[in-house]
Design a protein around this nucleic acid. Sequence first.
DNA 1: TATGAATGAGTCTTCATTCAT
DNA 2: AATGAATGAAGACTCATTCAT
Lengths: 181, 181, 181, 181
Amino acid sequence: MATDRESVLLAAVGLLSRQPTAAMDEIARAAGISRATLHRLFPGREALIHEIGTLALARMGAALDAATVEEGDPVAAVRRLADAVIPHAQLVAFISGESRLFDDDAINDAWDRVDARVAALFLRGQQSGAFRIELPASWLSEAFFDLLAGVGWAVQDGRLAHRESNRALTELFLGGAVRRD
Amino acid sequence: MATDRESVLLAAVGLLSRQPTAAMDEIARAAGISRATLHRLFPGREALIHEIGTLALARMGAALDAATVEEGDPVAAVRRLADAVIPHAQLVAFISGESRLFDDDAINDAWDRVDARVAALFLRGQQSGAFRIELPASWLSEAFFDLLAGVGWAVQDGRLAHRESNRALTELFLGGAVRRD
Amino acid sequence: MATDRESVLLAAVGLLSRQPTAAMDEIARAAGISRATLHRLFPGREALIHEIGTLALARMGAALDAATVEEGDPVAAVRRLADAVIPHAQLVAFISGESRLFDDDAINDAWDRVDARVAALFLRGQQSGAFRIELPASWLSEAFFDLLAGVGWAVQDGRLAHRESNRALTELFLGGAVRRD
Amino acid sequence: MATDRESVLLAAVGLLSRQPTAAMDEIARAAGISRATLHRLFPGREALIHEIGTLALARMGAALDAATVEEGDPVAAVRRLADAVIPHAQLVAFISGESRLFDDDAINDAWDRVDARVAALFLRGQQSGAFRIELPASWLSEAFFDLLAGVGWAVQDGRLAHRESNRALTELFLGGAVRRD
DNA sequence: TATGAATGAGTCTTCATTCAT
DNA sequence: AATGAATGAAGACTCATTCAT
């Protein structure tokens, strides 16, 4: 079925994000290939996880670039970021939620840099008066990823329609649950 | 040292939430007891996980009761709930994040009931005009737990001070990131 | 490069005698051919080993014939045998040292017949008074092969010059280590 | 059955010296323990091989000491060495014959030192006029081990009686196959 | 209650082998 | 003839669990 590396990685993420202890066996089955082929494509479980992290970081970096988060109105930038990153919510959720699976310093450092770009966006927004200053920018960044991951899970499990996901994320994150007139 | 069941469970949660594949060996060491004692206290890994789930549900249920979420102003009820549940954020994060570890239907059903109580709170709040109606109550409920889990991790990892955790959760969840005059 | 069966066999012996667990991959590389070609030439690892044995036996039989070990002075016959067999020391070492690799009865039986011809030579020599009778002829035969294999290894590893190998074998085997006036 | 480390090692040697590719499975069965226990006693195949080497070197060193090979008549010293080492012929055969299995430099260096002590004995004997000078001392040393290994195999396979083994080794090695009046 | 020995049941990984290109 | 993809079978290794001390 899925014989190219990337589709195997996506199948692996789909499984590992729900079941971090999944055996290579199950991952291979989920990808529609045999265990041995999985091991040929990725020599060892660690290598597989590493490549998932690399892919997730690449997607995340591309999304940050595409959203030009360093420019323009911070609130609009958050909306653009959500647009760009939601298609990869599952991947990003994996790396942010299961970051403890990565022994690899290269991955963790790269993730820190991504995180810093997002935190910088919120800091910029706080300085411009767009975002509330009572909450640390780092927490805003982390919360954004928490909700992004939540959206990813909810969509995958069918609890949230795909086309609602963007609004669910941005409306709640930006505006909160409380109604304003 | 920690010979009573509950402290062992808490130690296990602390380890398993960062390292879901941790061996019984390591769990025992983390709890300061021997493997054999761990096995005597909980007959098998599955039983251990099951009891963690049971404990988490009990704490969550107690928190919902203590917060009297079915009564009074919905926004105030959410604040009371956050107060009551944040001390158990780690436990709740475990059961909500790793819910697929539980084959046990009893646990999953009980969790659904807990979830329903929270969703009912938001539904009530939407009907009373307190919460925004653009977002499904079920998503509000899920997002609340996502942020609660995020707060739990951030506190455990030292990224968020304990006494800030309540405000970080409720302010963001209720009010969103955008500043109002 | 080495596309004829025999040179492949010799390359395989060279590798397998140092590294009995060598993978087919490595054998192919050592022979300068591809895995697929190796598999075409010899259908399976077992077949390869079998053919090595066959080749070794053929060489050994030819050496016994060429040395006319059944005729003439036994001591001279041993010298002729050493002459004839030393060029194939590596092959013979393989089959005598790794004989348990051969499940094949045909190989083992043929090896027994070869062994018997050598033992017969020593028996004849003992009866003619040329060889000592304190030592069983079968042990003389076995010891001869042990030393032959040792010479083969020593030459291959460069611990013994090629042109000394014959003397090293025959002098020690026939005359022993102790000096006579 | 054999639950102490040493008897497991000896069982492993017995198997590995005939079948260097034997699986851990078979080794465990030969030792009368389960695979898992074998892995607990020796963490990995490499560790097992390493410990065999260590044991063999210890035995060999003790034999060299016990035989006081550095003192007295060289021929008598060889006889004492044979006496002391024949009970461990199998172990010594393993390390001398399968030395390529040892990646470990510590083992190989230690073996070189053992080998050097034996070669020194022969060199001393050549200088004293006891041993023939036509043959390099290093070859005498190597040939001694070749025959020792051969004796070990022959005894194990029942081709040579245990009480004949010493004579078979020393008589052939010292005196050669040719009869003297 | 703790410790260490022991093992069945997996899991990870490699290899020989085949096939399509 | 060579290369790379693919896999069943097998080997190495780990772990949860039990028992004896």
